[in-house]
Computed example of a mutant assay.
Amino acid sequence: MPAYWIAHVTVTDPERYAQYRAATPAAIARFGGRFLARGGESDVLEGPALDRHVLIVFPDLAAARACYASAEYQAAKANRDGACIAHVVIVDGAPDA
């Protein structure tokens, strides 16, 4: 069953955040993940407006968790730390997804 990373981000340091964006695709792909949404135009219908919305699908919950915990992703994430306000969750997909 697929699992998803859902991230809502407000970028505070675009230069540092760009380093994170450049470094993450390899880590995501190594665990079978792929971006379904990565920024782009969005409409906030409820709640606070945030700059970016990211949705990544993984083959399963174990792969999503392993990716986040990996040394490769954590090294990329070091570029993000202090460059944004991020809310990131990993959620198991619906059984019929």
Rank of each mutant, 00 (worst) to 15 (best):
Y4G: 13
I6Y: 06
A7W: 11
V11T: 03
D13L: 00
P14W: 04
R16K: 06
R16C: 00
R16F: 00
A18Y: 06
A18F: 05
Q19F: 01
Q19V: 01
Y20I: 01
A22V: 02
A22G: 02
A27N: 04
A27W: 04
I28L: 01
I28V: 09
A29M: 02
A29V: 03
R30P: 00
G32W: 11
G32A: 05
G32Y: 07
G33I: 00
R34N: 14
R34E: 15
F35W: 06
F35T: 02
L36G: 04
L36P: 05
L36I: 09
A37R: 08
A37P: 01
A37E: 09
A37W: 00
R38Y: 11
R38A: 11
R38C: 10
R38N: 15
G39A: 01
G39W: 03
E41H: 13
D43E: 13
D43F: 01
V44D: 14
V44F: 10
L45P: 03
L45V: 12
L45C: 03
E46S: 05
P48N: 11
A49R: 15
L50P: 02
L50F: 02
D51H: 11
D51L: 04
R52S: 11
H53T: 15
V54A: 07
V54T: 09
I56Q: 02
V57T: 12
V57K: 09
F58T: 01
F58R: 04
F58D: 05
P59H: 12
P59Q: 10
P59R: 06
D60P: 08
D60Q: 07
L61F: 10
L61N: 06
A64R: 03
A66G: 15
A69R: 11
E72R: 12
Y73W: 04
Q74L: 07
Q74W: 07
A75E: 15
A75Y: 06
A76S: 07
K77N: 15
A78R: 14
N79D: 12
R80W: 06
D81T: 12
G82Q: 08
A83G: 09
C84M: 12
I85P: 00
A86R: 01
H87D: 15
V88S: 05
V89H: 05
I90E: 08
I90W: 02
V91H: 09
V91M: 11
V91L: 13
D92V: 07
D92C: 03
D92N: 14
G93N: 07
G93M: 03
A94H: 07
A94R: 08
D96H: 12
D96Y: 08
A97K: 04
A97S: 12
